[in-house]
Design a protein around this nucleic acid. Structure first.
Lengths: 329, 329
DNA sequence: GTGAAAGCGCTAACAG
DNA sequence: CTGTTAGCGCTTTCAC
């Protein structure tokens, strides 16, 4: 079942078979009849080239690595789907991994992917992975960072305008008459989270209001997270609105509020939309990142670098949209 | 940066280097000092073996293929995450692809994965892919089918008890006093959907009630789907409860009901849970498939076959849990 | 203890 | 037009 056996059986040489199979019969000026004979036999025995051997010989694996925080969540999941779809026309497959925000795991994964000689890497880096990325950059592997930029290191990057969008979000809440706005956020070291937080800081300071911020670690079990949020709400009775740096914090908070059964209604606005936000009562306003556009740009950027390794890095900021629903009215 | 250069530089042979790197120095009785010299140099230049070449030589790619319908949805996304996690201890990586229910695409993807000589395949097959699976079975590639079984073809399989769970769900609705239960389902040819439908049929017939079934195609744009659902509700004013074969149909219906602004409240029960079902008003009852347990069993089954290619096929049915919330009270 | 050599399956010059 | 040859980078057997 190898090219060798085919060659032997047909009494031609390996290279002839290889050329024909790869559609280069024409340009290698191989006779139509011979080509047909080979193709027919290949068809007959159902021969399939070994992609591994091909990759080794050509240096092309036709595979792109995708490293995200959690493939199962409502941000990275759909992004992954879109990335796969946009990559498909180029003939690329996707090898994925979720880091779950764990640095050690993230390092191991990245190392493994580099060793596999993938043709390109799409990475939402974990905190602390900067040095490894820097090193990777030296190796000339095409790379696109997304969602969270690595400050100080110039790379290809695609992400949303976290800072500006965050300011808009908080301003919107203020405009609608809320005056004491608390922010619930996560793992404040991540650049995108920092920027969202910064936006909150700036607007609230501008209004000379009090800041109330709850910062939660990533990877906290739901029950604990809910407990922290509950305490935060209790400790800050003055709050009339809540701003969330990401949607699952909003979801957790909604669960807390529901369990509290107080009838205090907070104004709410979350970064990132959620499929069911428009079904809740009240419906939940959000800053929506355009997932498909981000995925598309990630792929375009990667392809650009693959086809032109020496091109300058490209940074694309894709603005998020404020989606106004009832929770911020 | 290849093993060759290391050998040359150290003036030893390739094989010695290879043995040392792979920790077989001991058994090959290579001197401690030589081994250390090699290891040190490897460390120094930061040498990484080329995984591709290694795979070609050993025939092991350390990669498992995962083919699902949609990696971005709330069923397959989390499943993919769990599969990855359970696979990690074995040193396997995951190459994924979404078929979006498209047969041609599904065939192409499966073919490509087979050519890549992956060490195992986890597959939620598309309709019509039976022949291809049959063929794959002949090739001895370790394979686990999940979510949707292929009738008539014995394979490893992991899934839930669709038929029984569906009966329980409809019975529950009846028990709670609903009497005219409509079912909204999809693409009724898929075995798991058939089974869910069959459960509905059986219970409703047992009660000598009228059946009202709306069958929607997979891959329908949201607006059209909502339109069909709306029409269905209008045409069937007698319905007092709705049973959904999968959660996004329930979500779509909730959107329709919301837009209708009638205050008719349907009893509702959906197959598959959704993160926000417990936040809606009323909270939505469901049949919950234990995602992590399914993923775990998929991996266990696959590993069993990989380690013991001649073992008999293993079929595991993991029961779903009825989660009772307010929508079915 | 160590190294030479063959081979995994394929591609791609280059000769004829 | 077709075949020879030399790799791609690594593993593994078997002499020495």
């Amino acid at each position: 079942m190898s090219i060798n056996e085919i060659a032997k059986h047909l009494k031609v040489s390996k290279s002839t078979v290889s050329l024909v199979i790869n559609g280069k019969a024409e340009q290698a000026r191989i006779s139509q009849s011979l080509a047909k004979r080979i193709l027919d036999y290949v068809e007959e025995i159902g021969y399939k080239p070994n992609a591994l051997a091909k990759s080794l010989a050509t240096g092309r694996s036709n595979t792109i690595g995708l490293i995200v925080e959690n493939i199962g969540d409502s941000f990275f999941g759909p992004i992954a789907l879109y990335i796969e779809e946009y990559l498909r026309p180029y003939g690329y497959h996707v090898l994925y991994s979720s880091t779950l925000g764990d640095l050690d795991l993230a390092r191991t994964i990245l190392t493994a992917m580099v060793d596999k000689k993938l043709e390109g890497l799409i990475l939402a880096p974990a905190m602390g992975q900067e040095d490894q990325v820097l090193q990777l950059l030296g190796s000339k592997t095409p790379l696109v960072i997304f969602d969270r930029r690595i400050p100080q290191i110039p790379t290809n990057y695609v992400g949303t305008d976290n800072y500006t969008a965050s300011k808009k979000a908080v301003e919107h809440l203020l405009d609608r008459g809320f005056s004491e706005i608390g922010m619930i956020t996560i793992d404040s070291e991540q650049p995108q989270m920092r920027d969202r937080l910064r936006g909150y800081h700036e607007i609230v300071e501008l209004q000379q209001k009090e800041k109330s911020i709850l910062t939660l670690p990533y990877r906290m079990v739901l029950a604990e997270r809910m407990e922290s949020i509950k305490q935060f709400l209790v400790d800050n009775p003055q709050l009339d609105a809540l701003y969330f740096s990401t949607n699952y914090l909003c979801v957790s908070t909604l669960k807390v509020v529901q369990s509290l059964q107080k009838d205090k209604a907070y104004g709410m606005l979350s970064f990132d939309d959620h499929e069911l936000f428009e079904l809740l009562n009240p419906t939940v306003s959000c800053m929506r990142q355009p997932l498909e556009a981000i995925a598309k740009e990630v792929v375009t950027t990667l392809m650009t670098q693959i086809n032109n390794p020496d091109a300058a890095f490209r940074e694309t900021i894709i603005p998020s949209d404020l989606v106004i629903r009832h929770s911020s009215q």
